[in-house]
Simulated scan of single mutants.
Amino acid sequence: MAEFGREDLRGSTFDRTDLSGSTFRAASLSNVTIRGTDLHHVKMTGVELWDVDISGEVRGLRINGVDVTAYVGEELARREPDLARMRPDDPDGFVEAWDLLEQLWDGTVERARLLDPAQLHEQVDGEWSFIETLRHLSFATASWVHCAIGGDPAPWHPLDLPWDEAPDDQGLPRDRTARPSLDEVLELRRARQADVRRVLEGLTEESLAADTTPPDGAGWPPPRPFAVKECLSIVLNEEWWHRTYAERDLAILERRPQ
């Protein structure tokens, strides 16, 4: 355990660092960027919280004693009425959700095609580029459909891209220097989309309620049983939110000079 007092740590990077149980007193966390980090059971008192942008899974968020979690959920539902369709309970609901996602993504891809191809490799505010986003969704499908549900311990394609904080010792692909074209990435993605559709169209109430059998030596997800419904819900969630982020960033790229 280390103790820092009156230290100047401005500009520091904490990568895969465990700060759980730490205490910050009279500290400046202004202009801090936090990515892929757990903030479970955090208590902040006497803080000044101005111009804060939080994007992620929010549960039990209380501000000045007021739980705003429900309000956030209700406002998201108001802005995005189709978001509720990403939480289906039966096989038909999963097929309908996938139909909608494919339709929405077709429009997003056509929007991306109007940009200079080089812009599809540009990052906005340090987020994934459009190409990297599609690569990550291919990874998500490989993980939760091919590996978790299908039992393939290593379904990866060299272009698959895990999340930035993924462990280094699981044999996952992570080529951040690759610059495939949009059509190259879409070829992989369409094959993975077709695999998802085959699984969804073959669902029954029984198979949806079943648990997966973890394959030996799997790199991701963790080698334990998961409910099939949970695996497929994760895929829908990934597809919905990464398209939302892609649309946000495409709007910014469209305003940049080409």
Rank of each mutant, 00 (worst) to 15 (best):
A70V: 12
R192Q: 13
D152C: 10
D195C: 01
L250Y: 12
H242S: 00
L49H: 09
V58T: 02
R198A: 11
L161T: 09
E247Y: 12
G60T: 11
G46L: 14
W105K: 01
Y71Q: 09
A77E: 02
P214E: 04
G126S: 07
G36T: 11
V72E: 08
A251R: 05
L120D: 12
T37Y: 06
Q119L: 14
E187V: 13
H40A: 13
S207H: 02
H41Q: 15
R6K: 15
A27H: 08
H242L: 13
L236D: 05
D89N: 04
G107P: 00
W105N: 01
F24T: 03
G93V: 00
F14Y: 11
L29R: 02
D216G: 05
N237P: 00
A194C: 05
H157I: 02
D249Q: 11
L161H: 11
L200A: 04
C147Y: 01
W105Q: 03
P81M: 01
P221T: 03
L161P: 13
V72Y: 06
F14K: 05
S28K: 08
S207R: 10
A251I: 10
E206M: 04
P117S: 03
D18R: 10
P225M: 06
A251M: 09
L104N: 02
G11W: 10
D164E: 14
R192Y: 00
E247A: 08
W144E: 07
V47Q: 15
P214K: 08
R25A: 15
A2V: 11
